[in-house]
Amino acid sequence: MTMRTDPASFSRYASGYDGVARFLHWLVVLLIAAQFVIGWTMPDIHKDTKPDGLIAWHLGVGATLIAAVVVRIVWRLTHTPAPASLSPFFRVVSHITHGLLYLALVAVPLLGWANASSRGWSVKLLGILPYPSISAVGSPVGHEMGDIHGYLAWVLFALIALHIVAALFHRFVLKDQTLQRMLP
């Protein structure tokens, strides 16, 4: 594995992501953190649960998260960053991990949305723009999506933890500029 040590190459690679990509990354981080805090503290959802209080907040933040992830994916597909200076092994691991993160960032909110739809709950962006229902009210499949949503949220949490450990590994062990590429 070769590592770049000259400052000129660090600055080139440290600026791999543009300001919009960095903003969207950190917006998604904040929304995910809010979702985990709300999800852990909100009451359990049962058959007659109403979407009030923390549950309403969870739905609202989730709707915002869906929009932010869609914008982030579109931005990433249309704005390719400069490649990182990684060994072939780390490049493959990075692609797999990022692919799984994006998959989980799409699947977890969609499953929650399907569950909310099956309960007849409205999912609204910023509390104003309603999203369409994606499962029928009373749908047993939509209800099951809620359980899968909860399990996959833990998978997402694990992937995020792996992502953070990898960023710290790059910073403190490999001493490369991978982490700096996403910092403001």
Rank of each mutant, 00 (worst) to 15 (best):
M1P: 15
M1V: 15
M3H: 12
R4H: 10
T5P: 09
T5H: 12
A8N: 09
S9N: 06
F10G: 10
F10N: 12
S11P: 05
A14D: 10
Y17V: 08
D18P: 13
D18R: 11
A21M: 08
A21F: 03
A21R: 07
R22F: 02
W26H: 12
I32A: 01
I32T: 06
A33K: 02
A34E: 00
Q35W: 00
F36C: 00
V37Y: 00
G39M: 00
W40L: 01
T41V: 02
P43C: 02
H46L: 04
K47Q: 14
T49N: 03
T49K: 03
P51H: 00
L54R: 03
A56P: 04
H58P: 00
G60Q: 01
V61Q: 00
A67I: 03
A67C: 03
A67N: 01
A68E: 02
V70E: 04
V70Q: 06
I73M: 06
T78S: 15
T78R: 13
T78V: 11
H79D: 06
H79L: 05
A82Q: 10
S85V: 04
S87D: 11
F89M: 14
R91K: 15
H95P: 06
H95S: 14
H98M: 08
H98Y: 06
V108S: 04
N115Y: 05
N115Q: 07
S117E: 02
S117A: 14
S117N: 05
S118L: 04
L126G: 15
L129P: 11
P130S: 14
P130R: 14
Y131M: 13
G138Q: 12
H143G: 12
G146P: 15
G150K: 10
Y151I: 15
L152G: 04
A153Q: 09
A153R: 06
W154T: 13
V155W: 02
L156V: 08
L159W: 01
L159S: 08
A161W: 04
L162E: 05
L162H: 06
L168M: 15
H170T: 13
D176G: 13
D176S: 11
D176C: 10
T178H: 07
L179Q: 08
Q180I: 01
R181C: 05
M182D: 02
L183H: 10
P184G: 12
